[in-house]
Design a protein around this nucleic acid. Structure first.
Length: 434
RNA sequence: GGGCUCGUAGUGAAGCGGUUAUCACGCCUCCCUGUCACGGAGGAGAUCGCCGGUUCGAUCCCGGUCGAGCCCGCCA
C-alpha cells in the first residue's frame, strides 16, 4: 500500500512504501539523503547501503521510484520523520538531464520568463512554482463556493460563435465548415440570456482576445469569471455583491494559506469589507492634485492612475481594492445602461494597481436596447444577435453582472509581476506552445 | 500598431576593439555518516542569436534580420 509523504508521521515504526519522483540527492559518502516528491510533499529517505545508492547511478532528478523502508522519528529530518533501511525500485528511469533545476527558486525576472515558460513542464515541479497554481485552484474554489452559496447556477456557453459578440475588441477568426466563425471574446450575450432562465448564473471559462497587446497584464487566452444576476434593485446591488465576493475570497485565502502566501512574498492584505468608491472624475482630480498631471481629457483611467488610486485608497481608506465609478458614456457598450450626466452605469474594480473587473448594469428594456444597438451600428436582426434580442422580447428582469479576470486576481493576490506567471501555459502574441 | 531596452555553455550571470571568453548552479569522475541551496578535489561543456559592414584584428563599434522583455494604446 502506498503511503503519502504527509501521512508518514502516522506510521512511525512501520514498514511502508512510498512512490514519487527523485527531487534531490545528497551523497555524503557513507550516507545518502534522497528527497522523494509526491503530490503531498517531500519525504526524506536515508540510505546507508551502497548497493541501493548504486541503483540511482546514471539516473537523473525526475526518476520515478518506489521506496520501501521503516518510518523513523527524527528531529533532524525535515518534517520530523524519515525513511530508513530503504529498498529502491525504479518505476520509470530518467536519464535525460533536466533543462532547469527544480530544487532552487526559479527566476521570475522579466528577462527570464521566456525560459520559465519554455520549460514549464519541468519548472512546475518546483514546489514554490506549484504553490502559485495550488493557490489558483483554491481561489477558484472559494469563488465557486461563494456563488453556489448565493444560489448561482454554473453554466457553459459556446466559445465558437458567429461574428463578434460585442464588437470592439479584436477577435480570432476561423473557418467553420466554410463559414466564418470567431472565438468568443466574452460570454456576455449568453449569460444575459440565461438570466431569463436561472436568474443567477456564472461561468469560469477562457475568453479569446486577438489584440496586439504586449504588456505584463495581457494574454490572448484569458480565464474569465462571468457573473450575471437578475432582479437587482439598482447598480449598487452588483457592486456590493462583487465587493462581498472579493472580500470573502481574499480574506479566506489569507486565512487558510497565509504561510504559502508569505513564502511567495505576497504582500500583506489591506482590505475593508466596504471598498472605497471614487468616480472617474474624482480620480482624475485627485491624481492631478498629487502629480500635477492632467488626465481629465482621458476617457478612461491611465495605467498609472490605476496604480496611483490603489495606493491612495490603501493609505487613505485602508483598502487596496477600490471601485472607479461613473465610466463615461463614450465607453459604453450597447448592452450597458445609461447613467446620469454622460456616464454609464458601470464601474471598474481595481486591486493592487490593476483593473480586475468591469461591473455594469445592463439595459433590460427591449425598446431601449434596440435603440442602443442601432446607434452602435449593430443589427438586431443579425443571426448573431436575433436570439439575444428574443430573450428580451420574452422578458428579462433588471439585471447586472461582471467580467472578472481570474488570472489577474491570482497574479495580484500573490504579488507576481506578470499575469502570465499566474497561467500554466500562457498564450500571447508570440507564444502558442507549450 | 507606436516607442524604449536586451540576445555570452543546459540554467543564471560577468566581461572586453587583441583574454586560453570569467563566475555560480547543474552534469561526469573521485573523497566525505546528518545533509536539507551539504562540503572538498578534478573534468567535460560556448561556432558570444544570425547575416553583412568598419577595422590589421569584432563577442565588443555600425547596419540589417530573427528572437525576447518593458511601456503606451486597448482591455480583464
Amino acid at each position: 500500500m502506498r503511503v503519502l509523504s504527509r501521512e508518514l508521521k502516522e506510521h512511525t515504526g512501520a514498514q511502508v512504501a512510498i512512490q514519487g519522483w527523485v527531487h534531490k540527492k545528497r551523497l555524503l559518502g557513507g550516507l545518502t539523503f534522497i528527497n522523494i516528491r509526491d503530490r503531498s510533499g517531500l519525504t526524506q529517505v536515508v540510505i546507508k547501503d551502497k548497493d541501493e545508492v548504486e541503483k540511482l547511478r546514471g539516473l537523473q532528478i525526475g526518476t520515478v521510484l518506489e521506496v520501501q523502508g521503516t518510518v523513523v522519528d527524527e528531529p533532524r529530518a525535515p518534517g520530523g520523520v524519515e525513511l530508513h533501511d530503504a529498498t529502491l525500485t525504479v518505476m520509470v528511469p530518467v536519464t535525460e538531464e533536466p533543462p532547469i533545476e527544480i530544487d532552487k527558486p526559479l527566476s521570475h525576472k522579466p528577462d527570464n520568463l521566456d525560459t520559465l515558460f519554455d520549460n514549464r513542464v519541468i519548472g512546475l515541479r518546483n514546489l514554490q512554482e506549484q504553490k502559485i497554481f495550488r493557490l489558483r485552484s483554491e481561489l477558484t474554489r472559494y469563488i465557486r463556493e461563494f456563488l453556489y452559496k448565493n444560489d448561482f447556477v454554473e453554466i457553459n456557453t459556446p466559445k465558437l460563435v458567429a461574428g463578434a459578440a460585442e464588437g470592439g475588441a479584436e477577435v480570432f477568426k476561423l473557418d467553420y465548415f466554410g463559414k466564418e466563425a470567431t472565438l468568443a471574446q466574452s460570454p456576455q450575450l449568453y449569460k444575459q440570456i440565461m438570466v431569463g432562465v436561472f436568474e443567477r448564473v456564472f461561468e469560469i471559462a477562457p475568453a479569446f482576445r486577438a489584440e496586439l497587446s504586449a504588456t505584463t497584464r495581457h494574454v490572448s487566452e484569458v480565464t474569465m469569471l462571468d457573473v450575471e444576476m437578475g432582479f437587482i434593485e439598482g447598480h449598487e446591488d452588483i457592486l456590493n455583491f462583487l465587493q462581498d465576493m472579493v472580500y470573502s475570497v481574499l480574506t479566506r485565502a489569507y486565512d487558510e494559506h497565509g504561510d504559502d502566501l508569505k513564502s511567495l512574498n505576497a504582500p500583506e492584505l489591506t482590505l475593508k469589507a466596504q471598498f472605497p468608491r471614487y468616480s472617474m472624475a474624482q480620480i482624475h482630480e485627485l491624481y492631478q492634485k498629487e502629480t500635477g498631471k492632467d488626465m481629465s481629457q482621458e476617457v478612461d483611467l491611465t495605467p498609472d492612475e490605476e496604480k496611483w488610486i490603489c495606493e491612495y485608497a490603501k493609505k487613505h481608506d485602508g483598502c487596496e481594492a477600490v471601485f472607479a465609478t461613473g465610466l463615461p458614456e463614450s465607453k459604453m457598450k450597447f448592452y450597458h445602461m445609461k447613467g446620469e450626466e454622460g456616464t454609464a452605469r458601470s464601474a471598474d474594480l481595481l486591486f493592487r494597481g490593476i483593473e480586475i473587473s468591469t461591473v455594469p448594469q445592463r439595459e433590460h428594456r427591449h425598446e431601449t436596447l434596440i435603440e442602443q444597438m442601432k446607434k452602435a451600428g449593430v443589427d438586431p436582426e443579425d443571426p448573431g444577435f436575433a436570439h439575444y434580442v428574443a430573450a428580451f422580447k420574452h422578458g428579462l428582469p433588471p439585471h447586472a453582472g461582471f467580467g472578472f479576470g481570474l488570472d489577474r486576481l491570482v497574479e495580484k493576490t500573490i504579488g507576481l509581476g506578470n499575469v502570465k506567471e499566474a497561467i500554466l501555459f500562457p498564450r500571447d502574441i508570440n507564444r502558442l506552445a507549450p
